Simulated assay, not measured.
Amino acid sequence: MITVTNLSVAYGEVLAVADVSLRVPPGCVLAVSGPSGAGKSSLLWAIAGAVRASSGTVEVDGLTITDRPAAAAHGVVLIPQGNGLARVLTARENLSMPLLADRALTAVLARRDEDDDEEREHTLDTIDGTIEKALKDVGLEDSGDHLVEELSGGEQQRVAVARGLAQQGRAILADESTSELDSTNRERVLELLRREADRGAAVIIATHDPNVAAGADGHATMDEGRLSWERRL
Rank of each mutant, 00 (worst) to 15 (best):
V108G: 10
N185F: 14
E149S: 07
P210K: 05
L85D: 12
G49C: 06
D175R: 00
M222S: 03
P35M: 11
A174V: 00
N185K: 10
V189N: 08
H208W: 08
I127V: 13
A171N: 02
G12M: 01
A107P: 10
H74V: 10
L190R: 09
A110D: 15
L89Y: 12
N94A: 05
L43S: 04
R52Q: 15
G84F: 04
Y11T: 03
R92G: 05
R232W: 12
G139Y: 12
D137P: 01
R199T: 14
S143C: 15
V20I: 03
L44H: 01
A38N: 06
T184L: 08
A213P: 03
H208E: 10
G27L: 02
R87K: 07
I204L: 12
G169A: 01
I47P: 02
G27W: 01
L233D: 09
P25E: 14
A73I: 14
I204Y: 05
R68S: 15
D175M: 02
L140P: 02
L95Y: 11
D128H: 13
V29K: 03
G225M: 06
A160M: 03
I79Y: 01
D116M: 03
M222Y: 04
V203K: 12
L44N: 02
R188L: 05
E150F: 08
V24Q: 07
G75K: 03
R188K: 05
L165W: 11
I172F: 10
G12F: 04
L105S: 08
V203W: 02
A110E: 15
A72K: 10
Q81P: 14
L173A: 09
V14F: 15
S177T: 13
I127F: 07
S177L: 13
L99F: 03
L190V: 07
G75F: 05
M97R: 12
D116Q: 08
G49M: 11
G39W: 01
E230Y: 01
E118L: 15
G37L: 01
A110L: 15
R68W: 01
D116F: 14
Y11V: 12
R52H: 07
L85V: 06
L165M: 07
A91Y: 04
